[in-house]
Design a protein around this nucleic acid. Structure first.
Length: 401
DNA sequence: TCTGGGGTCCTAGGACCC
DNA sequence: TCTGGGGTCCTAGGACCC
C-alpha cells in the first residue's frame, strides 16, 4: 500500500525522434518534410518520412535507396549532433536536477518532488516538450510512468513527437497487450526463444511464471523479464553516471588486408582512444581488442595492465601484443572489423614523459614539462626520480596524479 | 537483414587467496 | 595428500541498447 502511494508516475523518459535526421532537417529547411537518410555506407538515422518506406537502421544505403528512391542522403555531422545533445540536456537540467542520461539522445528525469514548484509530472512533460522544440528546434517524445522501465516503454509507444502518460493503476492494462519486443532487453534472440513457445505478448510472459522463464533464458534474464512483465522495477533515476569504457572501431569491408595495414589501423584507433581518454581525464587498465570476421563471427582478446594509464605508447604496445596473439585467427577467417576498447577506467593513472635532461643543474625542462602536464590533466603531478639510462621499463611511472 | 560506431551488462571457467 | 566454504580477479563470449 505504501508503495502504491509513493510510487506515483513521476519518472519521465525523454527521447529525441530520429535524432540525427531531425538535426539535419532543422539545419536545412530544404530537407523538411522529405525522407532523409544520415550516413553514406550504412543508414545511421532515417527521418520518419523515410521510415514510412520501411527504412531501418542499420541498413545498407543501397537497400535504403531501393526502398525509398526519393530520399536525400547526407553525411553525418557528429559535432552538430553533439552540440544539439548538450542543448537538449540543458533543457532537461532546467526542468529537474535529477537527470540520468542514457545515450546522446535520451534521458530519464525524476520530477516527483516538484509538484508545488512546477506542477504535475504530466504538466512538466508538456512544458518540457514545448521547451525543447522552442529552444533547440527538435521534436521529442516523452513517456511518463512510475518506473524507469515503463516510462521507456511509454516513450517508445508514443513516438514520434508524442506524449504518453501511464497513470497509476493502469500499468498492466497498458503493458500486457504489447508485443514482447517492446520490452527493454528483449532482442532478436530472446524474442525468438519466446516465440518458439508461442509467447508473443507481455501479458503472456507475465502468465508463464518465473521458473519457466529462468529455464528458458537463464537465471538473470529470466528473473529480469518476469519482473518487467509485472512492472516491478525498483531502480531510481541516478545522477552522475560515469562511463565504464572508452573505445573506437573501424569496419574494413570484405577485401583482404595486409597485416601491416591492420596494424596501422589499430595504431590510429589507439591514438583516437587515448586522446579521448586524456580529454576526459580517465585512465584505463584493461585493453580489449575486438575483431569481426568474414562470416560475421566475433572474437575479443584482452589484457589487464598493473596500473591504469592514458598513455598512447603503453596502450598501443598492449594492443599490438593482442593483435599478434590473434593473428592465426585473422589469417583463418579474414578480418572485417577491428576495434579497441579500454575499460577498468579510473580517475587517476600515469603519464610517462621522456625528456632531455642533462643532470642536476638542468632542471628547467623537467619543470616546464610538469607545468604542461598540470595544465593538461588538471591534477597534482608528483615526480619520482628514475635513472632512465639504466632502466627503460615503460611500466615505471615517473609522474603520477 | 548481409549489417556502423558507440556503449552496457551478464555468464562462466580458471587461477588464486584465506 | 586430501579436503570445505567463501571470496576476488582475469579472460572470453554473448545479448542487447541507441
Amino acid at each position: 500500500v505504501v508503495e502504491d502511494v509513493v510510487d506515483q508516475a513521476s519518472i519521465l523518459h525523454a527521447d529525441l525522434d530520429s535524432f540525427y535526421a531531425s538535426v539535419e532537417q532543422r539545419d536545412d529547411p530544404a530537407l523538411r518534410g522529405r525522407p532523409v537518410l544520415v550516413g553514406m555506407g550504412v543508414v545511421l538515422a532515417a527521418s520518419y518520412e523515410a521510415k514510412a518506406f520501411g527504412v531501418r537502421t542499420p541498413m545498407g544505403s543501397a537497400q535504403a535507396r531501393a526502398l525509398c528512391p526519393d530520399a536525400v542522403v547526407v553525411p553525418p555531422r557528429m559535432s552538430a549532433y553533439s552540440q544539439a545533445s548538450k542543448d537538449v540536456f540543458a533543457v532537461f537540467r532546467d526542468t529537474t536536477p535529477i537527470v540520468e542520461g542514457i545515450s546522446i539522445d535520451e534521458a530519464f528525469l525524476e520530477v516527483g518532488g516538484l509538484h508545488k514548484i512546477r506542477g504535475t509530472p504530466t504538466e512538466i512533460a508538456i512544458r518540457l516538450r514545448a521547451e525543447v522544440r522552442q529552444r533547440v528546434g527538435l521534436p521529442i517524445t516523452v513517456g511518463v510512468a512510475g518506473t524507469k522501465f515503463l516510462a521507456k516503454v511509454a516513450s517508445g509507444v508514443g513516438k514520434p513527437d508524442g506524449l504518453l502518460v501511464v497513470p497509476p493503476g493502469k500499468e498492466l492494462a497498458f503493458l500486457h497487450p504489447l508485443p514482447v519486443e517492446r520490452l527493454w532487453g528483449v532482442g532478436p534472440v530472446t524474442a525468438g526463444k519466446l516465440h518458439e513457445r508461442q509467447i508473443r505478448t507481455v501479458g503472456q510472459v507475465a502468465r508463464v511464471g518465473e521458473a519457466a522463464l529462468v529455464a528458458m533464458l537463464g537465471a538473470h534474464a529470466g528473473r529480469h523479464l518476469h519482473a518487467l512483465a509485472h512492472n516491478h522495477d525498483p531502480r531510481r533515476v541516478r545522477v552522475g553516471h560515469r562511463r565504464g569504457s572508452i573505445g573506437s572501431q573501424c569496419a574494413l569491408g570484405r577485401r583482404p588486408r595486409p597485416f601491416a595495414e591492420i596494424e596501422a589501423t589499430l595504431a590510429a584507433l589507439v591514438d583516437r582512444v587515448t586522446r579521448r581518454m586524456r580529454g576526459a581525464k580517465r585512465a584505463g587498465r584493461t585493453v580489449t581488442l575486438r575483431l569481426r570476421f568474414g562470416d560475421f563471427s566475433r572474437a575479443t582478446r584482452s589484457h589487464s595492465l598493473l596500473k591504469a594509464t592514458m598513455q598512447t605508447r603503453a596502450i598501443l604496445e598492449t594492443a599490438r601484443g593482442l593483435l599478434t596473439e590473434a593473428r592465426p585467427l585473422i589469417a583463418e577467417r579474414g578480418l572485417t572489423l577491428v576495434g579497441i576498447a579500454v575499460s577498468n577506467l579510473d580517475t587517476d593513472g600515469y603519464v610517462q614523459l621522456e625528456l632531455p635532461f642533462d643532470g642536476p643543474d638542468d632542471d628547467s625542462p623537467l619543470d616546464s614539462a610538469l607545468d604542461a602536464v598540470r595544465d593538461r590533466f588538471g591534477g597534482t603531478a608528483v615526480t619520482r626520480a628514475v635513472n632512465l639510462g639504466q632502466d627503460l621499463n615503460p611500466a615505471v611511472p615517473i609522474l603520477s596524479d
